[in-house]
Design a protein around this nucleic acid. Sequence first.
DNA 1: GAGTGGTCTAGACCACTGT
DNA 2: CAGTGGTCTAGACCACTCC
Lengths: 231, 231
Amino acid sequence: MQYLTIKDAIEEQIDTGMFEAGQKLPSERTLAETFSTTRITLREALNHLALSGKIYKEERRGWFVSTAKLIFNPMQCIDIAEACKEQKRNCRIEALSSHRLLATKEMLTVLKLSPFSYVKQQVSLIHIDGRRVAVQYRYIPEEMTTLLSHDEQTDVLTQLLNSFEYDSEKHEIEVGIIPASQLESDALNLSSGSMLLSINQVACNKSQTPFLLQTIRCCHDAINLKISQTA
Amino acid sequence: MQYLTIKDAIEEQIDTGMFEAGQKLPSERTLAETFSTTRITLREALNHLALSGKIYKEERRGWFVSTAKLIFNPMQCIDIAEACKEQKRNCRIEALSSHRLLATKEMLTVLKLSPFSYVKQQVSLIHIDGRRVAVQYRYIPEEMTTLLSHDEQTDVLTQLLNSFEYDSEKHEIEVGIIPASQLESDALNLSSGSMLLSINQVACNKSQTPFLLQTIRCCHDAINLKISQTA
DNA sequence: GAGTGGTCTAGACCACTGT
DNA sequence: CAGTGGTCTAGACCACTCC
């Protein structure tokens, strides 16, 4: 298996520090020539490397060496920015959209709302150390947003969400692998249908009322999920 | 994008019940001819479908339609067979190996053992509804296995583990995506380096002593991770 | 032994990125 | 505009599975 040899060769060059984290690899054509093979075989090698999280691809821009993963505990934390801060990673949250929506059936169930309730949807793009790594969807029951200022800035909302002092004892999470949607591919600079890690969180406040449904769709090489109840 | 059209066509045939769960799809060559394309393009379509969990591949045997996912809560449950029973799925656990090993550094840490401790390793292959879906690694501190009979049968050990009545309040989990090892590829009939969902669990008993480190490597289209503290 | 997927070659054209 | 990755063609040989 030629592609495994190539994979190992590139992997070794990364591990021995020939390529720095975040650095772009040579083009597929250059690499194919280097290893005297075709682009198809070379891409096979790169795809396998990407699965292990060592490198990632940006649409039409090339292959890059992954940086260290952010450790995230979705059972304790609903805010990636907070996790970044603790781990001294640079985080920027870019608001993509904010809408008032009729709650879907699933939202009604998990947020325990009455039929035809509205939710506030907020979609954000999360950058860690300059790289686009995740798209975050937040759904908040409309009645709970009346407490909030109508400022759309993420930071304000985030702080307010945190002020709810949610009860981490009552927290439901769903984790899975899904192909990126069009919106996610575009926002994250991925080729359509790329693999994303999907994290669904339902957070409740102290009085056991669910107040937030959050979905994070992230690059699997950027986040390490460590789930525990005790910090 | 031709491959997306093909993907959608196959997906529709599956959704409308033209292919039953577990059924084998026509061969790549046949499908390629059907859609008047090459195998490479067709495989691109199949790979994208596989990412969404609709189909899966067995090494040199072909592509199959996925069955319903098993819902698994690793925060509450350390036994896939138990989850299968509750969800009325047929589960068979096949013991692959059982050894006494010197604990690695990681095991010493998570199991809170003194240096140079030994652990009992037990590797099993899990079948659900006749399909090989996961490889399970269990590591148990040797001193705790003295309580157990030396019968190597999985069922006995499983029952004994359950009799520990582990404390689900104290439970740590790690979830990630990794390429299959050689052992895992062979056991699960996968091509080398296929994507697996990796679930790491550390379970403690009521006296807060960790007694089990378990790693499950499973096909992502076979298991749905729903994590919550309350059942 | 026929058929399957696994791997590979040697090209090609396109849409898009970066300069 | 040059270069990149995205997609595609039209083959080929091999190791393995299934009959």
